[in-house]
Simulated assay, not measured.
Amino acid sequence: MKNELDSKLLLRVFDKIRQHGTKKEDQYHLNGITAYTDLDGYTLFVEDSNVKLQFGFHNQYHFDYDSESQFDTFEKRIKQIDKEY
């Protein structure tokens, strides 16, 4: 996912988090990852404690993190959710 987001993977993982995760208010939590949408549902947010991903209309996205190791951990968690569920 580095610099190139696999949108199909992200959407698949987002759905798996919603299906299998724990819902708390308007957010879903699974394996250290939180997933939620904005009010209109056009923008998805997927994050852990160090990395925030905003994925929006027309497959536009933005990552926010401080170090490559934080991103690598986030990426591993995302891929693990995709494999496990």
Rank of each mutant, 00 (worst) to 15 (best):
N59V: 00
F55W: 11
Q60L: 10
Q60N: 14
L53K: 03
Q70M: 07
Q70C: 04
D72V: 12
D64P: 00
L44W: 14
L39S: 13
D38W: 01
T73I: 13
T37R: 12
I33E: 03
Y65S: 05
L53I: 03
E68Y: 07
K76P: 00
T34E: 13
L30Y: 13
F71R: 03
G41R: 04
L39C: 03
Q54A: 09
T43Y: 02
E68C: 00
Q60W: 02
F63S: 01
F74I: 09
Y36K: 12
L39R: 10
K52T: 09
H58C: 04
S69T: 12
E75M: 08
L53R: 02
D66M: 08
Q54G: 01
E75Q: 13
F74C: 08
T73Y: 05
Y65L: 03
I33Y: 05
H58G: 05
T37A: 04
Y65C: 04
G56L: 06
F57S: 10
F55M: 07
D64F: 04
Q54K: 15
L30C: 05
F55P: 03
N59T: 03
D66Y: 07
I33F: 07
N31V: 05
D64G: 01
T73M: 09
H62F: 06
L44R: 14
E75R: 11
K52H: 10
T73G: 04
E75G: 00
F57G: 00
K52Y: 04
D40F: 11
D38H: 02
Q60K: 15
V51C: 06
L39A: 11
Y42L: 11
Y61I: 01
D38V: 01
N59A: 10
